[in-house]
Write a protein that binds this DNA or RNA. Structure first.
Lengths: 229, 229
DNA sequence: TTCTTGTCACCTAGGTGTTAATAT
DNA sequence: ATATTAACACCTAGGTGACAAGAA
């Protein structure tokens, strides 16, 4: 069995409609897909991998106010038509694959090397997705069958796990400001954009109390100012 | 068979008498021990590891001029007595172990996670060495024997490789200024201490032409000055 | 006197959202 | 009008030798 790590954070994002940035060079996911695994044969070899399947065959667009240049968007998405042609259905093998069950189970398995791109010609092995489309991450565990005719047992030698709370829309720029603010509040690498006190988020974060978004009305950083030292 | 990477650089250090810093928290080696491997069974599993054996049973001390407070040392070492009691003979498994021969052979194997410490009570799994003693790094390849009574074949299932040019003296502070300058000239992380032009060292480095040490007479950085921006 | 320790400025390496400019 | 791109300031994370102070 498999347990999703940081489920509370995933839930929080999912409630707002998770968005993941895709870039030409490849962008990591945040939250990172991480799991705890139970019940493997400690001595057997396993491959761990992820792929991403379209949630539907639709293309989306943002329901925007015609105020300032997309300074504000509604948080709702409109269907903009049929999906673009499917992208190459790549998979991402966890770089530690293959490894023994004992190895996988003794610590959290983190897919932090996985990157998303919108470059159909990508040759870095990144996951290729269509922007403005919705995807469901999937996690697969493949038992490395030592038998010579292992291909015959392929069907029974893998198991797939799907966590619906990890669904997201691929975007090239954030559409929903609340998503942006939640990313800033919870991703350590975005600390430079926080307004709030140097409070000990995310260490003390408990789900249920959501005092997260205090950076809403933050002032812009002038391009070449000394900045708040 | 195994080929040492950056052999020219190792030779250059070895000619001066390589020194490696040891600290309580653990310090990486520079140069990093890296090898190319040939002739493995691509489908078989191997463990790769390193250990460090004393070159002799001597303790060393530096032959210093009594001028300024060790502003200048001779480049020669004096024997200062018998070796201290041996340290726990730890080994460092390459973190990718175990892996298939194909995996090990398809790229340079780098031991850049290996750290040296002088803390006899270290519990971070670092290699424990005595300062002011000389050591010979050794590289071991262990074939993971699938047979049930594999212990019986332990003797024939591993092979050891020794590169004498990787010998070094463990120190808590550099004793030979030429070693310091060569480290500064060749280690990217020490770029802040370079005086010379932003020349494209080490990319263009060819052994034989040694225009390395141009940082000899560099000025000290005052502790709280704006420093050369 | 010699060696060790801890702190520091200065780097490498790379992950963030922002922004202005460019595509579509 | 909307979506994408590339450069950028600002972070995280951690590897350097210098230096002053301490230990033996």
């Amino acid at each position: 069995s498999v347990q999703l790590e940081m489920k509370a954070l995933w839930d929080e994002f999912n409630q707002l409609g998770t968005e993941m940035i895709v870039t030409k060079a490849g962008r990591r996911m945040f939250p990172t897909f991480q799991v705890k695994i139970f019940g493997m044969d400690p001595m057997a070899d396993y491959m761990l991998l992820m792929d991403f399947v379209p949630v539907d065959d639709k293309r989306y667009r943002q329901d925007a106010f015609p105020s300032r240049r997309y300074a504000f968007h509604s948080s709702s998405w409109l269907v903009a038509g049929k999906a673009d042609p499917a992208t190459p259905g790549r998979v991402h093998y966890h770089p530690d694959s293959p490894a023994k069950g004992a190895q996988w189970m003794k610590q959290i398995v983190s897919f932090d090397k996985l990157k998303l791109t919108n470059n159909l010609l990508d040759d870095n092995g990144h996951i290729i997705l269509n922007s403005m489309h919705r995807y469901q991450p999937r996690f697969h565990v493949v038992y490395v069958d030592p038998r010579k005719d292992s291909e015959k047992y392929a069907e029974e030698n893998f198991k797939t796990f799907v966590f619906e709370e990890t669904r997201f829309t691929a975007v090239t720029a954030y559409q929903n400001h609340r998503i942006t603010q939640l990313k800033i509040a919870s991703n350590p690498f975005a600390k430079g954009f926080r307004d709030c006190d140097p409070e000990d988020w995310p260490r003390n974060h408990r789900p249920g109390a959501l005092p997260l978004m205090s950076a809403f009305a933050r002032s812009r950083n002038p391009v070449s100012s000394p900045a708040h030292q």
